[in-house]
Design a protein around this nucleic acid. Structure first.
Length: 540
DNA sequence: TGTTCGGCTAG
DNA sequence: ATCGCAT
DNA sequence: ATGCGATATAGCCGAACA
């Protein structure tokens, strides 16, 4: 682990992408070749292989308990935490301060990996204690830097400016295998460790799509207007309804149905009606689509949410039935279709007759802005969010968010809200008040909170506002400040729903700050009635 | 039985 | 989702 | 212009715990 932590320390200090890649490439080539898979995986911030059956189930509270048992948390550690906005960094500082020395045999990456897998399998009574014991077996044997990255790895974010994408680049560099070949192998196998080993053995070309084994999903980018799509040359898009549900990949092979969610988790048992319907289907297929709550009509996402993660879905199966709207066919009877153009995949898809709760996604061709707007309106009428526009010639490029798929959604009206509470940020936002709770007013002028947002402002706006908030604090709660209701922000969002979390009785879905309204006063902000109106209009 | 925690989903 | 940096 | 990394929300469920 020493070498791993040293490498991460160097990465943390360098901004340049090319130096990072160099560092990682030489680290991958050095040391014990038996540990190559773990090196690649741990550098990507994954404690467990993607799609592992059991998660770690280790979080803040358990970590804090374990740390206090080894006396790693001196009184006052919280202020150190606030200074750096990162638990790993805070513990690193505290341990350094007290001259902490590790003792016992050093921890190898192999042992680290084995511990993670063991921790994941621990379940049942007193599992918390047993998980903690497993962590305590390692902690005293780690140096302060190792502890720092050990904790960050558990949280799944190393915060050194390197993610799996750059690890792929480094693998390509280290073993002189072309980057596209590495990317392709990784998307098919979803195992960066295995890909690193194959690169070393020069066998990446053997990576293939395997029915039953999930791979990364193709994602879409957002477009704001129909105008921007048809400005340039003549184009034609396939416009599909954008369903508001959960994305899923269905594999049907050797009589077995497996459904996977976007993070490659197997979710088959949560949707038995989909799995069962495929019994006896005459083709081997891999499908891509969206699982939606559906009862004659498409139901809102909130309904589907009640079915998610249910161990006994039968209880709600009748009340909240689901449909699987399929929009892509990626594999058919022994043949991968990933590199076939979308139009061809779609043609083959339509030729299959899929069983009942599985349906084919609504799709039309659009050639100009008018047709696109028309398709958009119709999609909304069917209860869907908008459109996904696809280039008919495009291959299926998993893991890529490219301009080949574009999503177009409705702009919901915005609300002007006043900021009443602000909280300290984390990581690079440490020391900045970056997280705003805001309110609307009722008819008596009382301020009722309706949401919390952090994105949408530039760094300099946040910096500027931080000093303003410091000067206009009403109360310091440690985690942040209650502030004078003077800063008005225009908030955009994707939906509004009833909620007990906020005093207004509503919560916004995906709120983000559009701009600061310097021209408005608190008397002029949006009212509870405004929120109710948007709610009634079907803001969901 | 109610509460806390961890993890998952969406954009 | 958004911003900002690196290339 | 593009790719990548960093920043975080609300709601819901189940499992473990008190």
């Amino acid at each position: 682990m020493k070498e791993w932590a040293r490498t991460l320390e160097s990465l943390e200090k360098t901004k340049s992408t090319s130096s990072k890649v160099e560092l990682v490439a030489s680290y991958l080539k050095s040391g014990d070749p038996e540990e190559l898979d773990l090196k690649a995986r741990f550098l990507s911030g994954q404690a467990l292989p993607l799609g592992s059956p059991d998660p770690l189930n280790v979080g803040w509270s358990l970590i804090l308990e374990a740390l206090s048992e080894i006396q790693a948390l001196e009184p006052g550690w919280e202020s150190v935490y606030r200074e750096y906005g990162d638990l790993g960094e805070a513990v690193f500082r505290v341990l350094g301060e007290k001259g902490w020395k590790e003792s016992g045999p050093p921890v190898s990456l192999r042992e680290l990996g084995a511990t993670f897998e063991q921790v994941a399998t621990i379940k049942g009574k007193s599992s918390r204690q047993r998980k903690k014991l497993a962590l305590l077996n390692l902690l005293p044997r780690l140096s302060p830097v190792e502890v720092k990255f050990f904790l960050r790895l558990i949280f799944g974010d190393l915060r050194v400016g390197l993610k799996e994408n750059l690890v792929e680049v480094a693998i390509s560099r280290a073993f002189s295998v072309s980057l596209p070949a590495i990317r392709k192998a990784n998307l098919l196998l979803s195992d960066i460790g295995q890909v690193a080993c194959m690169a070393k053995k020069k066998t990446v070309e053997q990576a293939a799509l395997i029915p039953g084994r999930p791979f990364k999903f193709m994602l879409a980018e957002t477009v704001l207007s129909s105008g921007e799509l048809f400005l340039k040359d003549y184009r034609e898009y396939l416009a599909e309804d954008k369903y508001d549900g959960i994305r899923a990949q269905l594999h049907f092979s050797s009589g077995v149905v497996r459904l996977f969610s976007r993070n490659l988790e197997e979710i088959s048992r949560h949707f038995p009606e989909i799995a069962q319907s495929m019994t006896g289907f005459p083709h081997e297929v891999i499908l891509d689509g969206e699982i939606v709550a559906f009862k004659d009509l498409v139901l809102p996402f909130a309904m589907l949410q009640k079915r998610l993660h249910r161990v006994k879905p039968e209880k709600v199966q009748e009340e909240i039935p689901v449909s699987y709207f399929v929009f892509d066919l990626l594999y058919l009877d022994g043949r991968s279709l990933l590199y076939q153009p979308l139009s061809e995949r779609r043609r083959l898809l339509s030729s299959l007759s899929l069983p009942k709760p599985i349906r084919i996604a609504h799709q039309v061709k659009v050639r100009n802005a008018e047709e696109m707007e028309e398709a958009f309106r119709k999609s909304r009428t069917r209860g869907n969010e908008g459109l996904v526009l696809k280039d008919p010639k495009s291959p299926y490029s998993p893991g890529k968010r490219g301009r080949q798929w574009l999503k177009y959604k409705k702009e919901l009206s915005t609300l002007d809200c006043v900021v009443v509470k602000v909280e300290w940020g984390h990581g690079k936002r440490a020391g900045l008040l970056s997280d705003f709770t805001f309110a609307v007013r009722d008819r008596h002028g009382a301020l009722l909170t309706i949401g919390k947002a952090f994105s949408g402002l530039t760094d300099s706006e946040i910096e500027h506002l931080t000093s303003w908030f410091r000067e206009h604090a009403l109360k310091d709660g440690g985690w942040g400040l209650l502030v004078e209701p003077k800063i008005i922000v225009e908030v955009a969002f994707n939906g509004i729903q009833r909620s007990s979390r906020h005093k207004s009785g509503f919560a916004l879905r995906f709120p983000r700050i559009k701009r600061i309204r310097e021209d408005k006063t608190v008397e002029e902000i949006s009212t509870l009635e405004d929120a109710e109106r948007i709610f009634m209009e079907g803001g969901r």
